[in-house]
Design a protein around this nucleic acid. Structure first.
Lengths: 225, 225
DNA sequence: AGGACAACTATACCTACGTTTGTAATGCGC
DNA sequence: GCGCATTACAAACGTAGGTATAGTTGTCCT
């Protein structure tokens, strides 16, 4: 069962349209409740679960968020859950909390990319600081991902030939070389190249090159010394 | 006092011209000796110290290396040493070992970029695996740094004006725009631009753009929508 | 069959880029 | 003073890039 608790308090404070969500996975009911209260008290939205399975089964909203995760859980453990999320390429930043942890656990968690690993008892402020760091990390990741996703969708509007031309342009070949490479007339390359610039909304070649960098496009041609 | 111990055994195995060095900082003499033996037994060069201060005072050779560091040390602790190294921008990958550690320690170490954090007793193979991962990380970092350093030194052979032109070229401006920006004739820009290509050894504009990316060169000009 | 679209080319024209050759002023170090 | 690097520009020329117009062929969908 999940508890969705939004902090809708009158309007004394301007609600950000996309408020950060803190997910909590913690089997201990009283602990779960107190975490929920803590986060709500500072104006964060909270969605709490009693197990990893419950969270995996729910549909996660696509907003800035982080996960406060108890290491010791019934069913899937916190560390296994972390691995599971990574496999599903769900990149939510994780803050572990635990009452009975050990060093190898914490090291594994941190190697796995966790933001923090707190041992009970901890001060509220410690956890809040970690949550702020985690949501900030998520915000940045989402920003970067969005930029790349936008570029990718532009790139996909290109016809196969246009994509091929773009790749070869990015490697620095001249139009006539591209034409030879693809078995085309130079004029055709010029025209496709024009299409590429328009469709990618590149204002300059420099622009386009940087786009290919962001997209990880690299034509595998040997370079002559 | 530091103990420098190279594994020069006959010639049964080809000595790599730049063998990896494992630095060890460990105050316990018998532990230090056994670590040294372990690393030598697999053909690694070892330089061992009894304290952080000793290592800081010695001249570190500029080769692929990593640091196996005891957390509990006389004088500067392992964690303080980690901070100190970071401040001096010495980026050697660190593997912590400890007999009496706790979770906050390990978390701080990992947050600080440590490769691993092992608790005694550990299996030899665990430590060796960590050392291999650490040296690999250092090798990659050195490679990247070298590439950028090479570019930087090329960039510094450019005259101030040539550097300015390069920056503006990288932003995607046309020669005539660059000329206006710098108060020059277009022909002058063309000539400097030619110098830039030659001196930077760029085979194409795409090449040059990627160089500016690697160098982090970005002219702060507002872009029109 | 007809329409839409991708792929491809040609002619023509204009702009942008790049190099060569030559000139000239300035400033710095020895 | 001499040599040298830097900065700067001009004329002339050749190459590369880019666009507009116009047309062919083939495929896929309806």
């Amino acid at each position: 069962m999940s508890e969705r608790s939004n902090s809708q308090r009158g309007g004394s404070k301007a609600e950000t349209s996309a408020n950060a969500i803190v997910f909590v996975v913690e089997d201990d009911v009283s602990m779960r409740r107190s975490l929920t209260n803590l986060f709500q008290s500072v104006g964060l939205d909270v969605v709490a679960f009693g197990s990893a399975r419950e969270m995996l089964q729910s549909t996660l909203p696509d907003v800035v968020s982080c996960l406060v995760l108890d290491v010791r859980l019934p069913g899937l453990s916190g560390l296994e859950f972390q691995t599971e999320l990574a496999k599903s390429s769900i990149h939510i930043p994780i803050i572990f909390i635990t009452g009975h942890g050990d060093i190898p656990m914490s090291v594994r968690a941190m190697k796995g990319g966790a933001v923090d690993f707190l041992t009970k008892p901890f001060r509220d402020q410690e956890l809040l600081d970690a949550v702020i760091a985690a949501t900030e990390r998520d915000r940045k990741r989402r920003q970067d991902e969005k930029t790349v996703a936008n570029l990718k969708s532009l790139f996909e509007t290109l016809s196969p030939r246009e994509q091929a031309v773009m790749k070869l342009v990015a490697t620095g070949l001249m139009n006539k070389q591209i034409a030879a490479e693809l078995g085309l007339a130079e004029i055709t390359v010029k025209i496709y190249r024009g299409h590429v610039m328009k469709k990618m909304r590149a204002r300059s070649l420099a622009d386009l090159i940087r786009m290919t960098e962001a997209l990880g496009i690299r034509a595998n041609r040997p370079e002559q010394t």
